[in-house]
Design a protein around this nucleic acid. Structure first.
Lengths: 248, 248
DNA sequence: ACCTGAACACCGTTCAAGT
DNA sequence: ACCTGAACACCGTTCAAGT
């Protein structure tokens, strides 16, 4: 049985991070970090469907059941893996002059990190992101948006919108990538054309859609435009700041 | 073996919809609709983790392996279930005067439908949404955004932003709902406070966060503000329209 | 065309026991 | 405190056979 399991109540997702960390360096020197790295590597190879405790344990040279000393369930391993992906996100040591550039960079960096591990988008969207690496990135976004003058619930909602749009977009994008993407896209396109009466607007385009990257960029710009407009503090192009009252 | 499996190539996710539909009414009258309804009902009870082919088959009064005539894998069942949830989304028979009200209503309606089946947000974010019901809703959003003057890749990106923000937000929201939510929130809050030096901006708030609904509403408004600003055709409050050139 | 029935390989998790 | 070892219950999927 894993230590301090009852500390946060019954099986809250993401709860590994809230439990006490088991002491390091046992006989095999099995640590969260080594486990996490192995899980990431196996997910990179076979995706979530291919992940199983037995092969992880084998790679770490322990018995399958040994893992249960470090985690309370398979799901905790996925929490480790997702946080490890967040660790790859570059974190600027000091903020940019314009808060919006920090937010924009965060969005693009987060997308890049998640895309580097195609399984991570879907996982990140389906669990609370409470690992230390994820929290540090959230803190960065909160700080940037706080400089824009957002406070309280508006600050929370703005930060959530930023993360959710990115994670949602990457999850959608990677959901196409299980096999070859082009035959799937072509099949969908044909399907829409064949039913052009039911889907007139969609049948019209999608002929040769642009790249995922450009479309994400435009999606992000839409949200950034909204943030800039609703920000209580606006930075003019000359660096002067103006205050505007704002109601939620 | 399921019919026409090779039609769209090797195991593309969401590919059930692109395969030919097996003829209806066999000996047991097993149809996609009956299967889908049963899957939704079982997911509502036990979530994705509790879903298994044997109990679905039992409820439909067939042998477990019979399902493989109608689907090629367990995953296809989830595609059925997600599309069934989209079917609950009200689809206006005629568009509103203002396109933005159509988009706003869509966002709130989609959230409501997904929240009614807490498992559906995570599933919707992790697979292409190619079912007939989902496509019909996408068409509605495309049509609304086309009235705003969006075309081509900008239209695609705008529509994607709308869906991805909603689905991403609901997935995040429901990821907290596995057990009781309040103890988890409290634990996170304590954790942030305890590490206030590392998370100054986040430690400051989160004391008593507002409701999910209000925060989603604000998130949606941020994106809607961006859409309104970037829309090639702007509707003034008096109903007059103006055109503005726009570059992606 | 649709469904049955038996069988296979696998996998998360438990629990008591070791050191 | 950390790891072993055996064992359990379950589950997706296959394939050949029925009607």
């Amino acid at each position: 049985m894993s230590p301090k399991k009852a500390a946060t109540g019954p099986s809250v997702p993401g709860a590994v991070w809230l439990r006490q960390r088991p002491p390091r360096r046992g006989q095999h020197g099995l640590t969260r970090e080594r486990i996490a790295a192995e899980v990431v590597s196996q997910l990179d190879h076979g995706g979530p469907a291919g992940l199983n405790l037995r092969s992880i344990a084998a790679a770490l040279d322990v018995h399958p059941t040994t893992l249960y000393w470090h985690v309370s369930a398979r799901d905790d391993l996925l929490d480790f893996a997702v946080d490890a992906v967040f660790a790859e996100l570059p974190l600027p040591t000091r903020p940019a002059d314009d808060w919006i550039e920090d937010v924009r960079a965060f969005m693009h960096n987060l997308r890049a990190a998640l895309l580097a591990h195609p399984w991570s988008g879907a996982l990140a969207s389906s669990r609370p992101l409470l690992g230390p690496e994820a929290l540090a990135r959230s803190e960065f976004v909160y700080a940037a948006l706080a400089r824009a003058g957002f406070t309280g619930d508006e600050l929370t909602a703005s930060a959530a919108a930023v993360s959710n749009l990115v994670i949602g977009s990457v999850a959608a994008e990677t959901s196409w990538q299980h096999g070859d993407e082009s035959p799937a896209r072509r099949a969908v396109h044909e399907h829409l054309r064949a039913n052009a009466e039911t889907y007139p607007a969609m049948a019209e385009l999608s002929t040769e859609s642009g790249h995922w990257g450009a479309q994400f960029s435009y999606s992000a710009d839409l949200l950034l435009a909204g943030l800039a407009q609703k920000a209580p503090i606006n930075v003019t192009s000359h660096g002067a700041t103006t205050q505007a009252p704002q109601i939620m």
